[in-house]
Simulated assay, not measured.
Amino acid sequence: MSPAPTSPASSRTTRLLVLLAAVLLLGAVGTYSVLHAAGRAARVNQQQAGGPPVATGSVTLAHAAGGPQLVFRSMAFGPHRDELSTVPVDHPDAVRTASGVKCLRFHAAAGTGICLRADHGAVQDTYHAVVLDAGLHELKSFPLSGIPTRSRVSPSGHLAAWTVFVSGDSYGGTNFSTRTSIVDTRNWRLEDNLETFTVLKDGQRVQSQDVNVWGVTFADDNAFYATVATGGQTYLVHGDLAARTLTTMHQNVECPSLSPDGTRIAYKHRVPGATNDVPWQLYVLDLRTGVETPTAEQRSVDDQAIWSDDSTLVYSLPGDNGSDLWTVPADGSGSPRELIGDALAPAFLG
Rank of each mutant, 00 (worst) to 15 (best):
L287V: 03
A21S: 11
S151K: 10
D82K: 11
G173A: 11
L136R: 02
R40K: 07
L24E: 01
S141Y: 04
P92W: 08
S99N: 09
S311T: 13
R337E: 14
F176Q: 06
V206S: 11
Q124P: 03
L132T: 03
Q69R: 05
I265V: 07
R189W: 07
M249A: 10
P8L: 02
G27F: 02
T180S: 09
W188N: 07
G290H: 07
R288E: 11
Q69G: 02
L139I: 11
A94S: 15
D119V: 06
A76R: 01
N252E: 01
V18T: 12
V291K: 15
V271W: 01
D202H: 15
N45H: 15
V213L: 12
S145L: 14
H107G: 11
A55I: 00
H80M: 05
G146L: 10
A49N: 12
D310S: 14
M75F: 12
A118V: 10
F142T: 13
V29C: 07
T327F: 01
S154T: 04
F348E: 00
T275R: 03
H269N: 07
V314R: 15
A305W: 02
G203Y: 03
P148M: 02
T149N: 06
N187P: 13
D169N: 10
E191L: 15
G215I: 06
S11P: 01
D119I: 02
V44G: 12
Q233T: 09
H158R: 08
T234R: 10
Y32S: 06
A4K: 09
R186I: 01
V237R: 13
V29M: 08
S300D: 15
W307K: 07
D184P: 00
L70C: 06
R270Y: 08
A223D: 12
T31W: 13
S323T: 00
H107C: 09
V34Q: 15
S167Y: 08
C115Q: 04
W307T: 04
R264F: 05
W188A: 04
V284T: 08
L144W: 10
A343T: 09
V211P: 06
R152E: 02
L19G: 05
G350P: 04
P279H: 04
N212T: 09
H128V: 10
A41N: 12
D221P: 00
S167V: 09
A219M: 11
A64L: 06
V199G: 08
L25N: 02
P68N: 03
T126K: 15
L19P: 00
N45E: 11
G173Y: 11
F197V: 01
D240M: 03
A62F: 00
I340E: 04
I147Q: 11
Q69K: 08
A305I: 03
G232W: 11
H238F: 06
V130W: 03
F106T: 04
V89T: 15
P336Y: 01
V29F: 09
T185F: 05
L258V: 13
A42P: 00
L144V: 14
A226T: 14
Q204N: 09
F224K: 03
T295D: 08
N212C: 03
G215Q: 05
A21V: 12
R337G: 15
T196R: 15
H120A: 08
F106A: 03
S33V: 06
A219Q: 12
A55E: 04
I306P: 13
G232T: 08
A160I: 05
R12H: 03
T227P: 06
E338I: 10
